Structures are given as structure tokens and as C-alpha cells.
Computed example of a mutant assay.
Amino acid sequence: MRWPMNGICAQPLLKRIRVPRLGPGRSRRRPDHVLADEAYSSRGFRAYLRKRGIGHTIPEKADQQLQRHHRGRQGGR
């Protein structure tokens, strides 16, 4: 079975994550920030993280940067 590389595999993983607290109380379910490699640089996965309020550091693939550059002013982030 091939897994798609657009963040679909990472979403269930992020739902199962638990971030421990320093003091009393149950662990949090949402991390403050996510680090990922270029395989997770899809628009859908970035939108999922933004919707949940999770900061992210994901480098863009070179072909995505080039495509945005070719679109000119309408292609920016």
C-alpha cells in the first residue's frame, strides 16, 4: 500500500499526540509548534495546522517555490 505524501498520514498522528504539562493537570492535545520535512509541505497539511492554531516550520520544495515565482504577484504566500 502506498501512502500519500500530503500530510494525510500526519493528521491522525497529530490527533494522538499528548504534550505533557509541567504542573498539575492533564496533558495537552495540541502542540505549540511542528517541525517537518519537505514531504509534508502540501497546501492541505499547512491549512490543517493553521486551522488548529499550530505553528509550523516546513521547508518548501524547490518546484513549489519556482511555481510561485512564475505566478508573479498573484502567487505569493
Rank of each mutant, 00 (worst) to 15 (best):
residue 26 R to H: 08
residue 55 G to T: 09
residue 18 R to D: 08
residue 25 G to H: 01
residue 63 D to P: 10
residue 51 K to M: 02
residue 63 D to H: 09
residue 69 H to A: 14
residue 33 H to Q: 04
residue 62 A to I: 12
residue 30 R to E: 03
residue 6 N to S: 15
residue 34 V to E: 02
residue 9 C to T: 13
residue 70 H to K: 14
residue 31 P to C: 01
residue 59 P to C: 11
residue 20 P to G: 05
residue 20 P to S: 09
residue 21 R to D: 08
residue 10 A to T: 11
residue 34 V to A: 03
residue 35 L to K: 13
residue 73 R to Y: 14
residue 75 G to L: 01
residue 2 R to C: 13
residue 9 C to F: 08
residue 19 V to R: 01
residue 32 D to S: 11
residue 51 K to G: 02
residue 47 A to H: 04
residue 26 R to T: 12
residue 46 R to E: 08
residue 74 Q to W: 01
residue 64 Q to T: 13
residue 17 I to M: 05
residue 48 Y to C: 02
residue 46 R to P: 00
residue 11 Q to A: 06
residue 73 R to T: 15
residue 64 Q to P: 06
residue 7 G to H: 00
residue 74 Q to I: 00
residue 11 Q to I: 06
residue 44 G to T: 05
residue 27 S to M: 06
residue 20 P to M: 03
residue 35 L to S: 15
residue 8 I to H: 09
residue 74 Q to F: 00
residue 2 R to H: 14
residue 43 R to Y: 06
residue 72 G to Y: 02
residue 61 K to A: 11
residue 54 I to S: 00
residue 15 K to G: 13
residue 64 Q to S: 07
residue 32 D to Y: 04
residue 30 R to L: 04
residue 46 R to V: 02
residue 74 Q to H: 02
residue 37 D to P: 14
residue 40 Y to R: 01
residue 30 R to Q: 01
residue 48 Y to Q: 01
residue 38 E to T: 15
residue 62 A to T: 15
residue 6 N to L: 03
residue 61 K to S: 15
residue 75 G to E: 03
